[in-house]
Design a protein around this nucleic acid. Structure first.
Lengths: 234, 234
DNA sequence: ATGCACTCGTGCATACATTCACAAAGCGGG
DNA sequence: CCCGCTTTGTGAATGTATGCACGAGTGCAT
């Protein structure tokens, strides 16, 4: 029992749903490209590899945007999901670490297209500074704060070797970044309120190894899933 | 109520735990390198950015390998986790797609070191065939089955453009691969029993965008997490 | 030998997520 | 205008995961 805030804090969307919304969004955009104007929860569920009831519940957190007996209007849903995810404007990102991975990330055009233009790439190694990757010149890490401020960067990507990752994160945070995508196999320690997500290739492979290894034991077991249900069938 | 199988099927480890075990493992190996011989659930929890009770419960699925009043023997835990994850031997992987990402993955030495040597890289583009990346010569995708069989590959990595991903997955499956790590922003459809995990950079950024955008609204809210609790504090 | 400090292992309560199942609502045909 | 078909939105049931709290071992000091 508690006082109701004067202005509703905005309905919180469950974490599990937040993870799936970008997937729905991608599918819906593809459908829109193919001139599909309406889609049912069943149809979307099929394409996303999840249960239809889950799709409906997920979408219901955005509001009641479906039409009974018909389905959801694709373009409208795209708009609503974009709005909810904060994708109505670009989010420039800064990449720390111009090694193998940092270069691949900067060179991979998909970021910009999807609303996350690379505002800068920095490295601590003077030898790496100056080279151009993906149309962006690598700058020294000392310039990080300047880049973050001038380009209004909120999201940083850590693509350094493990030993340098915490330092990179610290620098990002003190430069004013509030969200970090971490590719280094390290648990970052950050102040409360900073969002961190990590992508660890070795961890993913080890998880696969577990299920692979179990397969050898007894034939039971279905399908692995990261966070959103990924698909079986055939 | 059910008959007990004659031979215990091997206690199933909850998915959430399977995701954390590789993280504990990495930390424990680091500790071992630093000559730390014993660690408490509290200590490990601190380093992994999770709750101590969670660590104990997770480890209890492996068996009762701790010593009350003392903690866990690092080397022994490393051994047990490796065994449970099936990391007692190498798992060669084959990478489909020799583009930007495929090259970065093949070139990144971390795979081999962690028990996932690159058994081969294939591409459908004849122009890419023949070049050498990360010490491995790129071969044509027609050779996929041959590589999978001769090198006993169970795990495939899809690093193709979105449009080619499903085809890559189909070829991997029919070549005999039973686990797939998918980097393409596509929901793969695979037969039952095939494990798939996906890594989608755009999705990760969009999730960060959501929390970033909420931050603008009201100051509440803690920290994002993929699947294992990632850390706050400072 | 006894007691004290410490840490594991786990039952239980709570929180979160998924799925089912069905009433309510919209659409189109006659 | 009404009926039957379709599909949403959501309560309730089930399943999974988290975290607390505490009993039960273990080691060390006296």
């Amino acid at each position: 029992m508690e006082f109701m805030p004067v202005e509703r804090v905005r309905r919180r969307i469950p974490d599990a749903t937040v993870v799936r919304l970008p997937i729905y969004l991608r599918i819906l955009v593809e459908q829109a490209d193919e001139k599909v104007e309406w889609i049912s929860s069943e149809g979307l569920a099929e394409l996303a590899g999840v249960n239809a009831a889950k799709v409906r519940k997920d979408l219901s957190y955005l509001g009641s945007y479906g039409t009974r007996g018909v389905g959801y209007e694709v373009a409208f849903l795209v708009y609503q999901i974009r709005r909810e995810l904060g994708l109505t404007h670009d989010w420039p990102v800064v990449i720390v670490g111009a090694g193998n991975l940092g270069q691949a990330l900067a060179g991979y055009g998909g970021f910009g297209e999807r609303g996350f233009p690379v505002a800068g790439v920095v490295d601590i190694e003077p030898a790496k500074v100056g080279s151009v990757i993906g149309g962006v010149r690598v700058r020294h890490i000392e310039d990080l704060a300047q880049i973050v401020h001038s380009r209004r960067v909120h999201i940083g990507v850590v693509a350094t070797p493990p030993g340098a990752a915490q330092d990179a994160a610290d620098r990002l945070v003190s430069a004013g970044v509030t969200s970090i995508l971490n590719f280094a196999p390290v648990v970052l320690v950050v102040p409360r309120g900073i969002s961190v997500r990590k992508v660890d290739l070795a961890v993913e492979l080890q998880i696969l190894s577990y299920y692979e290894q179990r397969r050898a034991g007894v034939g039971l077991h279905a399908v692995t899933s990261n966070d959103a249900g990924r698909g079986a069938s055939a």
